[in-house]
């Protein structure tokens, strides 16, 4: 492999160094001790929800995030919760894990101008995917929320480790699709990058399939296809309505096949209205 340096990186960015940093990230060294402790406890078969709740309560920021999601419009019909343990029961441990991982990553780039749009997009896609799941009678709605939340987690890594190249990427007016430009600049696109992380962090296959194939749902393995289609459609809806960070979501396949494969032709108006309403309230 040849060394490749991007001209816009005064720090001397190299693709192979970036790849090594990503490999380090799969071991979770970059996150706070509380998050690490929480993540470890989730993989412990002997862990109980009271113990996990106690660990989260050590960190007011984490507690607030879990409570906020548990009291969000997604769970509005179930009343208000004020205790972390009740919030965990409501959202589920896997969703809590995704929320905390995602928030931890976003925190690390909070001073970057793109962070707000990346966050808004992730929230909108997680909401939209769940709404699509409701409209189609899917039963594992939490998986849809989680897959939507994590589908672009790979993009957050670029400003973490290659900020100047990421800035150049955002300013690039090339007509090439985003993943093509990402591969060119960073050596791997955000779908590949996010898949590596989600696999390493022990998320189930349906989650990393959604990350891997959300731009090309037709290539997704059959058991995960519905979830991937839902995330793919939610991704395109969110981007179309400006809850995105990219202007080129529509060069990578059409929208109609997703609508037809999911069987939401008759309910698409309601889904679009729900996402628009949710987008107005994302902080």
């Amino acid at each position: 492999m040849t060394s490749s340096r991007h001209a816009g990186d005064s720090g001397g960015f190299r693709k192979e160094e970036f790849r090594l940093k990503v490999e380090d990230l799969t071991l979770l060294p970059a996150i706070s001790p509380h998050v690490l402790e929480f993540m470890t406890s989730l993989d412990d078969p002997a862990a109980n929800i009271a113990g996990i709740s106690g660990r989260i309560e050590k960190d007011p920021g984490l507690s607030a995030r879990i409570l906020k999601v548990a009291n969000s419009p997604l769970y509005a019909s179930r009343g208000h919760v004020t205790r972390v343990i009740d919030a965990l029961v409501r959202v589920g441990l896997m969703t809590a894990k995704a929320i905390i991982m995602t928030a931890s990553f976003f925190d690390s780039i909070r001073d970057h101008p793109a962070v707000a749009s990346l966050w808004k997009h992730s929230m909108a896609v997680s909401f939209g995917a769940r709404k699509i799941g409701e409209a189609t009678g899917m039963t594992r709605l939490d998986e849809l929320y989680l897959a939507g939340l994590l589908h672009d987690i790979g993009k957050v890594v670029y400003p973490m480790f290659a900020r100047e190249s990421f800035d150049a990427y955002l300013e690039d007016d090339s007509t090439d699709p985003g993943p093509v430009r990402e591969s060119r600049l960073f050596g791997m696109d955000h779908a590949e990058l996010g898949t590596r992380l989600a696999e390493a962090w022990n998320f189930p296959p349906v989650i990393y399939h959604a990350i891997r194939y959300h731009h090309a749902p037709v290539d997704a393995p059959e058991p995960s296809r519905d979830v991937v289609n839902a995330v793919g459609l939610a991704d395109r809806i969110s981007s179309a309505y400006g809850m995105g960070h990219s202007e080129d979501p529509f060069v990578e396949g059409g929208i109609r096949p997703l609508i037809e494969n999911l069987g939401v032709s008759s309910s698409i108006d309601g889904i679009l209205a729900s996402v628009l309403g949710y987008g107005d309230n994302i902080e």
Binding site: I237, A240, Y241, I268, D269, L272, A273, L276, G277
Partner: peptide, 9 residues
């Protein structure tokens, strides 16, 4: 479809 949903909203 997208534009109409936006206008209705």
């Amino acid at each position: 479809i997208f534009i109409r949903a936006f206008e209705v909203f």
